[in-house]
Structures are given as C-alpha cells and as structure tokens.
Simulated assay, not measured.
Amino acid sequence: MNDCCSVIDLRQYTLHSGARDTLIELFDAELVEGQEATGMHIAGQFRDLDNPDRFVWIRGFRDLPARADALKAFYYGPGWRTHAAAANAAMVDSDNALLLKPLTLGAGYPRLDSVRPDAPAGSVIGGAVYHRGSADDGFVAFFTDQIVPVLAETGAEPVAVLESLVAENNFPALPLRDEVVLVWLARFADDAAYAEHRRQLDASPGWRQHVLPELVSRTVRPSQELRLRPTTRSQFR
C-alpha cells in the first residue's frame, strides 16, 4: 500500500456564489506548504464539476495523535491567522468533513514525496460516497467482490478506497460528519474518459440488474457521485 497516511480527511466546502476560484487561488498559494510543515499531507484539491460552489480537498495524517498535533499547530499558528479571514469569507459551510482510513491507496495516489505540480489539469477524479448503516455491515466485502469488478470493466479502477475511521474527533474545533461511509476514487484522463465510463456503467446489465439494486438496499440514503477537477497544485490528478 502507498505509505502516505493511516488517517485521511475528505472535506467538502460549500462556498458563496462566485467565490471558489478566489479560495482556490488562496489555498494553492498560501495554505498547502503551511499545513504540510506541521506534518499533514495535502494530497488533492478539486473543483466539483457538478456544483460550482463546492471545493473538495483531501489531507492525510500519519495517525490520530499526529492529526491532533498537526491541526493544533496549523490552526493556532501564524499561517492560518494570516489568511483565516479571507478563507472564511469565501465559505458558507465547512463542516462537511469525513474522518477516514484507507483500505487501498494504489500507485496512482500521491505519496509523501510526490512532486507537486504547478500546471492546470485536464484529468477527472471520479468516485462515490456510499452511506452505510454501520461499520460491521459487511459492505466492504460487497464492494470488493461485486462493485470493484464492474468499475474495473468500465474503466474506473479505484485508486483509493477509504472507509470511516470510527473514532472520537480529536480536534473538535473542526466538526466531522457522524456517519459510516465507504468512499472510492478513480482517475480518468479527461472528461471523455469519465463520460465513457458512465456510459458503460449505465449500459451494464450486471450493474443495473444485480449490483445497483443491492447497493441501494445496503445503503441508508442515495450515494453521492463525485466528479472532480484537480486544481493547479493538486498532487492527485
């Protein structure tokens, strides 16, 4: 497995209309290295292609104690104090956050020593968030045995598979969603490749007749589909 992190935050921010590019410019320029200096790994920053007012990002930590230490160091430090007002002015809601642990981090997931690019990306990071009833529901086996083969057949081999880390939030200043999920993410070369995956998936008899009905029965509310464009400095692209 990729040596990145044993704890991962998936954060989805709702922003004021028209504020996303401003926040991304600030984030990419001022908030990446400052967080990584405290021990975090800023693996991915994205525009949600289906919601112009949503910014999605992923950060990782060595373990839970390291998470607490890093968050305290950053949010009570000079870097955040300098830019907090500008960042918060863009946000309507920053509480949509999930505490996760990796089941799979493949070769396409950024490593701690991955080069950080500085160029626009045409790729798409696609995936889904599945909302589960409990941590012992057998969903991981269902996902591995039934969903992953169909995803792979339709051009969406997961790069990252994550599930909820059921643990107390050790930095309560940043709230977390209290639910159990499984998240998968895959890389597509461009919009056309993502669209072709969706076309093949929707046309798959096995998916429509067998896997999708069981997926619906095993989840407590509709899945969130993710279709994300990496920002200029996102490592995951």
Results as ranks from 00 to 15, higher is better:
91 M>N: 04
153 E>S: 08
197 H>F: 07
45 Q>Y: 05
38 T>C: 12
15 L>R: 00
58 I>N: 02
103 L>G: 01
147 I>G: 00
104 T>K: 14
2 N>C: 07
34 G>K: 04
66 A>M: 12
225 E>P: 06
131 H>R: 10
99 L>W: 01
112 L>P: 02
231 T>F: 09
84 A>F: 10
135 A>N: 07
217 S>H: 09
120 P>Y: 10
210 H>Y: 11
78 P>V: 06
190 D>W: 05
73 A>Y: 03
65 P>L: 12
194 Y>F: 15
126 G>Y: 03
79 G>M: 06
109 Y>V: 05
237 R>G: 09
219 T>E: 10
41 H>D: 06
55 F>E: 01
178 D>K: 15
82 T>A: 14
146 Q>K: 09
159 V>R: 00
237 R>P: 03
132 R>Q: 02
151 L>C: 06
119 A>E: 10
177 R>G: 03
156 A>F: 09
64 L>S: 05
64 L>R: 11
29 A>G: 11
12 Q>I: 14
219 T>K: 03
204 S>Y: 07
228 L>A: 09
67 R>G: 06
18 G>C: 12
201 L>F: 07
107 A>D: 13
125 I>A: 03
168 E>G: 09
3 D>Y: 04
169 N>M: 08
81 R>K: 15
154 T>R: 12
232 T>L: 14
149 P>Y: 08
237 R>M: 09
11 R>H: 10
90 A>Y: 01
56 V>F: 04
93 D>Q: 05
111 R>I: 01
218 R>P: 00
44 G>H: 04
171 F>D: 01
56 V>N: 03
35 Q>P: 07
216 V>L: 10
124 V>M: 08
62 R>Y: 10
90 A>W: 00
94 S>N: 11
207 W>S: 02
43 A>Q: 06
214 E>N: 13
136 D>V: 08
219 T>R: 04
195 A>K: 13
14 T>F: 02
89 A>H: 14
191 D>Q: 10
36 E>K: 12
46 F>D: 05
24 I>Q: 01
138 G>N: 12
164 S>P: 06
107 A>K: 06
183 V>T: 07
205 P>L: 07
174 L>D: 03
224 Q>E: 15
177 R>L: 06
10 L>E: 02
